Every structure is written in structure tokens, then in C-alpha cells.
Simulated scan of single mutants.
Amino acid sequence: MTPILWRRAEARDAAALSLLGGATFLASFAHDHPGDALIAHVRKAHGEAFYAAALADPEQALLIGETALGAPVGYALLTPPALPVERRDGDLELKRIYLLSGWQGGGNGAALLKLAMEEARRRGAKRLLLAVYEANVGAQRFYARHGFVEIGETVFMVGDAPFRDLIFAAAVG
């Protein structure tokens, strides 16, 4: 497997993040999300304008992973928390963390999560929150192995279709 080169994303990465975000979201959820709603969601939530705005916002951080040839293969987005749980001072949300399927395994997910934790620590976070689809048992196990515990739930809407997400938290160590 080609190694992933990780770095902080920059304004010039908005188009690559849009393509990567859309591709990973489709690959992750096309099996049980309604097609038209899924496409509309990807266009809005993973459009280039979304990533350009996130990159311009100092309260958000994007990490991007690329091959040695510069092809994007993974990313993570940290934001101020917006999940419906009791918040604490020092909370930060890991809003998105994705790898293309060909780069999953072999420690790449753990490496990306570690980088996200390091970024959270640099930002003064004490606790990292995230939401994961209830049907994604593999991701839930991954987060549990890395110290995350379930603390709540929320509903994630894709068009008119509701999906139950579980909210997890871990101390930023």
C-alpha cells in the first residue's frame, strides 16, 4: 500500500476535499440511503464552497492525506461542537474523518485519528466528540479501541430520511 502523506489542508485544497468528501460519503452510505437525497446532500455538504468556507474559518481545521503523487485519499475535519449533548469547556468535534477504501486498514485510520487528536490538543481541547452512524458497527469498534465511549445520540438527516447516529466522546490526552 502506498504510504499516506498527511498535512494541514490549505485554501488550494477545497476542490480536492470536495471530491474526496463526496466520494467517501457515497461509498459509505449508498447502500442504505435514498439516492436522490444522497446526491443532494453530497452536492450541498461536500461542495467546494463548503470546504472553502471551512478552510477560511480559523475555528475549523482540516487535515488531508495524499499519495506521493498528490492524489487525495483521506481527510479529517475538526469544528466547534454542534452535537446535542451537554457540552464542556474544551470540547471539540471531529465532524468528519474518512479514508478511501483502498487506504483503509494497515493503521491509516489510527494514524489519521492520532493526527486529529494532536490537532485538538494544539487547539486546547480537552474532549473530542464525534457522531457515527448506528449501522456502522466497524467504526464504533474502531472508536472504542481508541478510548471513545458512547454518550448520546442524534438524528442525521439526508433529505427527508432520518438516520440515527451515536455520539461518542474521548479525552484528548
Rank of each mutant, 00 (worst) to 15 (best):
residue 79 T to H: 04
residue 71 A to T: 14
residue 51 Y to S: 09
residue 117 M to A: 13
residue 141 R to K: 13
residue 38 L to N: 01
residue 147 G to P: 05
residue 159 G to I: 02
residue 44 K to Y: 14
residue 109 G to D: 07
residue 99 L to R: 03
residue 64 I to D: 01
residue 169 A to W: 01
residue 56 A to C: 12
residue 18 S to W: 01
residue 149 V to Y: 14
residue 40 A to I: 08
residue 143 Y to A: 04
residue 39 I to V: 15
residue 115 L to F: 08
residue 38 L to S: 03
residue 41 H to T: 05
residue 102 G to C: 07
residue 137 V to F: 13
residue 40 A to D: 13
residue 94 L to V: 04
residue 163 F to K: 08
residue 161 A to H: 14
residue 129 L to P: 03
residue 129 L to R: 03
residue 103 W to V: 12
residue 119 E to I: 02
residue 154 T to S: 13
residue 45 A to D: 10
residue 73 V to I: 07
residue 153 E to K: 12
residue 105 G to N: 07
residue 112 L to D: 05
residue 47 G to F: 11
residue 130 L to N: 02
residue 38 L to G: 01
residue 161 A to P: 02
residue 14 A to I: 03
residue 5 L to Q: 14
residue 44 K to T: 15
residue 75 Y to K: 08
residue 49 A to C: 09
residue 39 I to Q: 09
residue 109 G to S: 09
residue 77 L to D: 00
residue 81 P to D: 08
residue 44 K to H: 15
residue 173 G to L: 11
residue 141 R to I: 09
residue 162 P to K: 07
residue 141 R to L: 08
residue 5 L to H: 15
residue 82 A to P: 00
residue 50 F to G: 06
residue 147 G to W: 08
residue 37 A to V: 03
residue 1 M to W: 02
residue 33 H to M: 14
residue 111 A to H: 08
residue 58 P to I: 11
residue 118 E to W: 11
residue 23 A to N: 07
residue 161 A to R: 13
residue 3 P to V: 06
residue 124 G to E: 10
residue 62 L to D: 02
residue 33 H to I: 13
residue 64 I to H: 00
residue 78 L to C: 06
residue 13 D to S: 04
residue 93 E to M: 05
residue 143 Y to K: 04
residue 18 S to C: 04
residue 54 A to Y: 12
residue 51 Y to L: 13
residue 148 F to L: 10
residue 59 E to P: 00
residue 11 A to Y: 03
residue 21 G to Q: 00
residue 140 Q to G: 12
residue 158 V to D: 03
residue 150 E to A: 15
residue 75 Y to H: 13
residue 53 A to L: 13
residue 54 A to N: 11
residue 113 L to Q: 01
residue 41 H to M: 05
residue 37 A to I: 05
residue 168 F to L: 15
residue 42 V to I: 12
residue 44 K to L: 14
residue 167 I to E: 00
residue 104 Q to L: 11
residue 100 L to M: 12
residue 49 A to N: 13
residue 5 L to N: 13
residue 159 G to D: 02
residue 49 A to M: 11
residue 113 L to D: 01
residue 1 M to I: 05
residue 83 L to S: 10
residue 81 P to W: 03
residue 129 L to D: 03
residue 62 L to V: 11
residue 131 A to C: 09
residue 38 L to P: 00
residue 129 L to K: 04
residue 168 F to M: 12
residue 127 R to H: 11
residue 98 Y to T: 06
residue 121 R to V: 06
